[in-house]
């Protein structure tokens, strides 16, 4: 999944997979911080997989 998304042109910095137990609150905070930092560090700010047109029912 990660490979194909990257193959399609999603930056690796935007993709994170992690296994966090409900008891690991500190790990969650840690991962969430790293993910946002990595995504914000990207030069290309273009949003991907975001629809701008109204959704057709």
């Amino acid at each position: 999944m990660k490979n194909l998304l990257e193959h399609m042109g999603i930056e690796p910095e935007r993709l994170h997979f992690s296994w966090i137990s409900s008891a690991e609150s500190t790990k969650f905070v840690d991962v969430a911080t790293k993910v946002t930092e990595a995504a914000k560090s990207l030069e290309n700010k273009e949003k991907k997989f975001v629809k701008t047109k109204p959704k057709v029912a």
Partner: peptide, 16 residues
């Protein structure tokens, strides 16, 4: 596949 893999994320996105 390798040709596409060699592209940058922007180029890949544009390719697809």
């Amino acid at each position: 596949v390798k040709e596409i893999e060699a592209l940058s994320p922007e180029e890949k996105w544009a390719h697809f």
